[in-house]
Amino acid sequence: MPHTQWEDFSFDGIGTHWVVSTPGPLDASLRVRLLAVVERYDGDWSRFRNDSTVSAMSRKPGRYELPVEAVALGDLYRSLYGITKGAMTPLIGGSLERLGYDAAYSLRPAGEALPAPRWEDVLSWDGSVLTTSAPLVLDIGAAGKGLLVDLLAAELRSCGVDTFLIDASGDLLNNGPEPVIVALEHPYDPAKAIGTVPLTAGALCASASNRRAWGDGLHHVLDGTTGRPVRTAVATWAMADSTLLADALATALFFVPGMDLEQTFDFSWLTVFSDGSAAYSAGFEGTLFT
């Protein structure tokens, strides 16, 4: 991970632990600015906060203005919604709540799995303006943490900090001069690794069905067309220039082969399946243990 001489700024935000590592300590004013970025982002996008813009969408249809990052986020989601034929969708929030992954973290299903509404039926996403025709539970969890990593990176750069490593509980952005060797977590035993990969400049994000799992085989990666958890892939990794893209593609790998995604996106990837097999791109430079 980061060089031993580096300084860490650690905090909690959007339900996960963060570490921003830099060659020297960040001054107090910059730390405050970074925390303000996290608070603003949470206040806009969280479906777990009653006062967020996203929560307002769940109560009343209408026109909602979101920050500028909504432009890139919406374009990426729209592309992946099409590629996965509706399986990956920002409208999966209601399906997650139905199975118990709700704002109260009840983890108790309220009924059978519920498919997500079709994007074209309920949502117009035009730049940073979202217009809804019915109450809906927007959930950008498939790409949201990566988006926030990139927003924090932009804040660091705007303040003259150009060398850093951001670790959002395993989703990483390396903006340092040397590669970081990252262990690839075993999908069935977090204490073990199935391999390692060097992360040079850029982002590495992972998704795994064991990370948010509850009940009888329930986890957070749902197929929007059925509302049910995906059963084929169990863990994925994606490496790309931006953390937003790497985070989103790590989820998309649960629904479509990486080779198909490579036709649209420039990234490298690894997918581990429930039968123990694995597939990976020619550009994935990791080493898998035997």
Results as ranks from 00 to 15, higher is better:
2 P>G: 01
5 Q>P: 01
5 Q>Y: 07
8 D>F: 06
14 I>L: 08
15 G>C: 10
17 H>N: 06
19 V>L: 14
20 V>I: 15
21 S>Y: 05
24 G>K: 14
24 G>A: 14
25 P>A: 01
26 L>C: 00
26 L>A: 06
28 A>H: 10
29 S>D: 03
30 L>D: 09
33 R>T: 11
37 V>H: 08
37 V>K: 04
38 V>G: 11
39 E>G: 05
40 R>E: 15
40 R>Y: 09
41 Y>C: 04
41 Y>M: 02
42 D>G: 02
43 G>K: 02
46 S>G: 14
46 S>A: 12
46 S>P: 02
52 S>T: 01
54 V>R: 07
56 A>N: 10
56 A>S: 14
57 M>W: 06
57 M>L: 12
60 K>W: 10
60 K>T: 09
64 Y>A: 11
64 Y>C: 01
64 Y>M: 10
65 E>W: 06
68 V>I: 11
70 A>H: 02
70 A>E: 04
73 L>E: 04
76 L>C: 03
80 L>D: 06
82 G>W: 04
88 M>S: 13
90 P>F: 15
92 I>E: 14
93 G>W: 13
96 L>T: 03
96 L>S: 09
98 R>S: 07
102 D>R: 10
103 A>W: 14
107 L>T: 01
108 R>A: 12
111 G>F: 13
114 L>Y: 04
116 A>E: 12
119 W>R: 15
125 W>P: 10
129 V>H: 00
130 L>C: 03
133 S>H: 14
134 A>F: 02
136 L>K: 00
137 V>K: 14
138 L>R: 13
142 A>Q: 07
149 V>M: 11
149 V>C: 13
151 L>Q: 12
153 A>I: 08
155 E>V: 05
156 L>C: 14
158 S>G: 06
160 G>E: 09
161 V>I: 15
163 T>M: 02
164 F>M: 01
167 D>P: 05
169 S>V: 02
170 G>Y: 04
170 G>L: 10
171 D>F: 00
180 V>R: 12
181 I>N: 13
187 P>K: 07
189 D>Y: 09
190 P>M: 10
193 A>S: 14
197 V>A: 13
199 L>H: 12
200 T>R: 13
202 G>L: 04
203 A>H: 09
205 C>N: 01
207 S>H: 01
210 N>S: 15
212 R>V: 15
213 A>F: 11
216 D>P: 06
222 L>P: 10
228 R>F: 09
228 R>W: 05
229 P>Q: 08
230 V>N: 03
233 A>G: 11
240 A>P: 04
241 D>Q: 10
242 S>R: 09
243 T>N: 06
247 D>I: 03
249 L>K: 02
250 A>Y: 00
250 A>R: 08
252 A>D: 08
252 A>C: 12
252 A>T: 00
253 L>P: 04
254 F>T: 14
254 F>C: 14
255 F>R: 07
255 F>V: 02
258 G>W: 06
259 M>F: 04
262 E>A: 06
263 Q>P: 01
263 Q>F: 05
264 T>I: 08
264 T>P: 00
264 T>Q: 14
265 F>V: 07
270 L>R: 10
276 G>F: 14
276 G>K: 13
277 S>L: 04
280 Y>W: 07
280 Y>K: 15
280 Y>C: 13
282 A>V: 01
283 G>L: 07
284 F>G: 03
286 G>N: 06
